[in-house]
């Protein structure tokens, strides 16, 4: 391995604030920082993070449905060498939310984006493969983790499963 360059969490925050002043930084605790990022700057911030933090570990992409066509995406990264977590939070809105992909910058997030797409309908523009990952074909385009996707019997007909028999009247069935 080549030489190790360490960067402290405060130095990272300073660097982000000087390079990308649109981005707001919040310290969640002493080793966890959040960057609230406008949608257009997502590739810039992820590029900056991967360039300034060596061996940045892509932990997760978290999609959240805030209802009324508002969504959030959180990208979670961890640095083992510097021992801090950093998360990038992006707000999206509209009936067809979309954001640019970062999977070509850090490939470990490719499937996380793919999963978030099938579950929430958030389009990651430029992701090489946004086909279904976990869901069966019947649920394509239904986005089951959105809050408006109901899981009660009201959707049973859609699923193609047999309808339950109606309950017999009280006192037993009479013919």
């Amino acid at each position: 391995m080549s030489s190790i360059d360490l960067i402290s969490i405060t130095a990272l925050v300073r660097k982000v604030q000087s390079d990308l002043p649109e981005i707001e930084a919040k310290m969640l605790n002493e080793s966890h920082v959040e960057f609230v990022t406008p949608k257009e700057k997502i590739r810039d911030i992820v590029t900056l993070l991967t360039e300034s933090v060596q061996m940045l570990f892509p932990e997760s992409v978290i999609g959240i449905d805030l209802e009324e066509d508002k969504y959030e995406v959180i990208y979670m990264f961890w640095s083992h060498l510097n021992n801090f977590l950093c998360q990038v939070r992006v707000s999206l809105d509209g009936p067809d939310p979309s954001i640019e992909t970062v999977s070509d910058i850090i490939s470990g997030l490719e499937w996380h984006e793919r999963e978030t797409h099938e579950m929430y309908g958030i389009k990651f523009e430029g992701n090489p493969d946004l086909s279904l990952l976990l869901l069966p074909e019947e649920l394509e385009g239904k986005y089951p983790l959105r809050k408006r996707f109901k899981t009660d019997r009201s959707r049973l007909a859609e699923s193609g499963l047999p309808q339950p028999k109606p309950r017999p009247p009280k006192g037993g069935a009479t013919e």
């Binding site: 391995m1 080793s31 061996m55 940045l56 570990f57 892509p58 932990e59 083992h80 021992n83 850090i106 490939s107 470990g108 997030l109």
Partner: peptide, 29 residues
């Protein structure tokens, strides 16, 4: 694979420690 590649793909645990990187949450945080 190298540790850098493994971390970029999101591998962790013994798969990274076998590359000589002591990346272990039990110790780190």
């Amino acid at each position: 694979y190298t540790a850098e590649q493994g971390i970029k793909w999101g591998l962790s645990g013994p798969n990274i420690k076998a590359c000589g990187i002591p990346m272990d949450l039990r110790k780190d945080s």
